[in-house]
Design a binder for these strands. Structure first.
Length: 429
RNA sequence: GCGGGUGUAGCUCAGUUGGUUAGAGCGCCAGAUUGUGAUUCUGGAGGUCGCGGGUUCGAGACCCGUCACUCGCCCCA
C-alpha cells in the first residue's frame, strides 16, 4: 500500500494506483484468461471511449442513483460540453450499439476491459480509478443468453482458481408486470411499518424501495423477514423464464443459491440478476455482478433491444488469485561484455539472440562480479561472457547460472548451443 | 458524504513517564575480488519523523487542524 505522503504534489491522486510488477503481471494474466474464454464463447472485443457525454450516464443510470448523484467525474471540455469519465461499461456499449446502427447485426456479443472512475471513499477493493472486465450480449431475449453469460463467468472464475472462494447468488426481478406489482406491495408493507425502519431505509422507501431488502440494519432485517416475497408476484412468463435459466445452470453443474433479496434499483432491469460474492474481501464482497437489462437501449433512444451482461472488478479478482497461478516472467539470457573493447561484439550477439526470440538482459557496467550478480538477480538462465581472450580465439564463454558450469563456444555456434541447452532445461522442468 | 484506527529510511518496523548528534533488519551503492554470481566480511549513501500550527526550557512522542492510507456505513466491481 502507498505510504503517507511526502509532499502534496508527488502522490498519486487519492484512490488511484500505479500498476506495475506483480500486480501488472496478475492483471495481464487475468485479462488473458478472460479474453481466451470470452472468444471461445463467441464474443468480440469492443473498446469504447473512457469518457462520454454526461447525458449517456445520466439517462441510463437515472438521476437519483448514487452513481449519478454523487460519484461521477464530470467536467466541461473547452468547447463547453459536459463530459463524464465512465463509471461503468454498459452505458458506453449501449451507446456504441446505437451510434453504430448495430441493430442490423444482432445478436451482438461483446467483451471489454478498461478503467472506470467513481468519486468514492477508497477502501480495500474500492478505488476511484479501477478496472473492469465486461461481457454483454445484445439482442437475445431468450434465457439461453442468461445461461451462457453465467457459464462464461463460472468458467472464468474456475480457471482463475476461485471456484471455492465465490458463491453465485441469483434472483429474478421478473418482467415489468411482476416487478411493478411487487414494488407496490413492498411500498405498502414498509409504509405500514415506517416507524420501524432505519433512516437510510426511509429514503430508500422514497427513491428505491427494493433496496431496503438488502439493508444491513438489524431493525430493517427484522421487518424484511416478514415482507412480501418477490417470488409470490411472478407471473407465468416470469416463472417460465426463471425456470429455464435454472434448468440450464443445473445442466452445466453451475451451483448457485437463490437470494430473493438480491435486487437492482433501476427500472430497466428485468428477469435475471446475479452476483458472485466472496467473504475474503471485507466489505467489498461482490467480485462479479450483472443481470438482464432489456429496457436499457430503448430508454436511451435506440430500438427496443434485449440485453444481458456482467462486469467484474480486476482489483478484486487480483486480490483473490493465488500468486503461484500467475506465470513468472521468462528467464532471460545475460549478455556480459568484459570491458569496453568487447561491447560492440556484445551488442551484436545480444541482437542476434533477440532476433531468435530470446529475452536478453544486457549488462551495462561494473566488474564481472557485479555483472554476474545482476544477472543472477534477474534469474538469468545463462550468461554469455564476452571477453578479449575468448574473442581472440573466435569464441565466447557461456556459463550456466543454475549449476555454475561454463564452456567456451565458437561464435557461430552460440545460438544453436543456447537453443539446445534451453530446450533441455525446459524438459528438466 | 458519515464514524473508528494508523502515518518514523526504498520495504518491514523499534524508539521508555516529553530530554542532547533518530535506530535495526532487509534492500541499494562500494570494497575485500581490476575475468566469474547465489555464501561471507567490511564500509557508505539514504530521514524536513506525512504536512501546518500550538503547548513546553525542550516534541518523533502531548494538543488542534489538514492530507493520505486503512476498517466500517452509504453504495458498488
Amino acid at each position: 500500500m502507498a505510504k503517507a505522503q511526502k509532499g502534496p504534489k508527488l502522490q498519486p491522486v487519492r484512490g488511484t494506483h500505479d500498476i506495475m510488477g506483480d500486480k501488472a503481471r496478475t492483471f495481464r494474466f487475468i485479462n488473458k484468461v478472460f479474453q481466451d474464454i470470452a472468444k471461445r464463447f463467441g464474443h468480440e472485443e469492443i473498446s469504447t471511449p473512457i469518457f462520454e457525454f454526461t447525458e449517456v450516464f445520466n439517462r441510463t443510470l437515472g438521476e437519483t442513483s448514487d452513481v449519478v448523484s454523487k460519484e461521477m467525474y464530470t467536467f466541461e471540455d473547452r468547447g463547453g460540453e459536459s463530459l463524464t469519465l465512465r463509471p461503468e461499461y454498459t452505458a458506453g456499449i449501449a451507446r456504441a450499439f446505437i451510434s453504430n446502427g448495430l441493430q442490423q447485426s444482432l445478436p451482438c456479443k461483446f467483451f471489454g476491459f478498461g478503467p472506470m472512475f467513481r468519486y468514492e471513499r477508497p477502501q480495500k477493493g474500492r478505488m476511484r480509478q479501477f478496472h473492469q472486465i465486461d461481457v454483454e450480449i445484445l439482442g437475445v431475449p431468450e434465457p439461453q443468453a442468461d445461461i451462457e453469460v453465467l457459464a462464461l463467468a463460472a468458467t472464468l472464475l474456475d480457471k482463475l482458481g476461485l471456484k471455492d472462494d465465490v458463491t453465485l447468488e441469483i434472483n429474478s426481478l421478473g418482467d415489468k408486470e411482476s416487478r411493478d406489482n411487487y414494488r407496490d406491495a413492498l411500498v405498502e408493507y414498509f409504509t405500514a411499518h415506517k416507524d420501524g425502519l432505519s433512516e437510510d431505509s426511509l429514503t430508500r422507501l422514497e427513491k428505491n424501495p427494493m433496496r431496503i431488502l438488502d439493508s444491513k440494519d438489524d431493525g430493517d432485517r427484522a421487518l424484511v423477514e416478514n415482507a412480501p416475497r418477490i417470488s409470490d408476484y411472478y407471473n407465468e412468463a416470469t416463472k417460465a423464464f426463471f425456470d429455464e435459466v435454472r434448468v440450464g445452470l443445473d445442466a452445466l453443474d453451475i451451483t448457485y443459491v437463490i437470494n430473493e433479496r438480491l435486487v437492482r434499483g433501476l427500472d430497466y432491469y428485468s428477469h435475471t440478476a446475479f452476483e458472485f460474492i466472496t467473504t475474503k474481501l471485507g466489505a467489498q464482497g461482490t467480485v462479479l455482478a450483472g443481470g438482464r437489462y432489456d429496457g436499457l437501449i430503448e430508454k436511451m433512444g435506440g430500438p427496443a433491444t434485449a440485453g444481458i451482461g456482467w462486469a467484474a472488478g480486476m482489483e478484486r479478482l487480483a486480490e483473490l488469485v493465488a500468486p503461484d497461478l500467475v506465470p513468472a516472467p521468462a528467464r532471460p539470457i545475460a549478455v556480459v561484455p568484459v570491458g569496453a573493447t568487447c561491447q560492440a561484439k556484445a551488442i551484436e550477439i545480444a541482437q542476434q539472440l533477440r532476433s531468435a526470440g530470446h529475452r536478453i538482459e544486457m549488462s551495462y557496467r561494473g566488474n564481472m562480479a557485479k555483472r554476474l550478480k545482476r544477472a543472477n538477480k534477474v534469474h538469468a538462465n545463462e550468461a554469455v561472457i564476452i571477453g578479449e581472450d575468448e574473442l581472440a580465439r573466435g569464441r565466447v564463454m557461456i556459463k550456466n547460472l543454475n549449476d555454475g558450469n561454463q564452456q567456451e563456444v565458437v561464435l557461430d555456434e552460440v545460438l544453436n548451443y543456447l537453443n539446445l541447452y534451453l530446450s533441455l532445461e525446459v524438459k528438466k522442468l
